[in-house]
């Protein structure tokens, strides 16, 4: 039993383990996904302002506010699209 204890392998330090895991984790993390992977980019850019107008009109109608109180922004976030609408009530 004593000799078995002596033979026991030295445990790997957690730094070494963390370093190995970090290398694996970071190998793909910075990959950027363009919107053109999913839809035609030109079509997307052209449609944005038209779509913003439609959303603005709808929000103004349903919230009963003036159109200038509705701010609509369309953003591309690494492969997905976010439409942000802010409505200000006087």
């Amino acid at each position: 039993m004593f000799f078995g204890f002596m033979r026991r392998r030295k445990k790997k330090g957690s730094r070494t383990e963390a370093k190995e895991r970090l290398e694996n984790m970071l190998s793909t993390r910075r990959r950027v996904v363009p919107i053109s992977n999913f839809i035609d980019e030109k079509h997307f850019r052209n449609s944005v302002s038209e779509m913003e107008n439609v959303v603005r009109e709808l929000a103004a109608k349903y919230f009963n506010v003036a159109k200038h109180n509705v701010r609509v922004e369309c953003e591309e976030h690494n492969g997905y699209v976010v439409i942000i609408t802010n409505i200000t009530f006087d």
């Binding site: 330090g13 957690s14 730094r15 070494t16 963390a18 370093k19 970090l22």
Partner: peptide
């Protein structure tokens, strides 16, 4: 120092 945390170089 004990090898239990990533170093600044890592």
């Amino acid at each position: 120092k004990r090898g239990e945390m990533l170093t600044k170089e890592d």
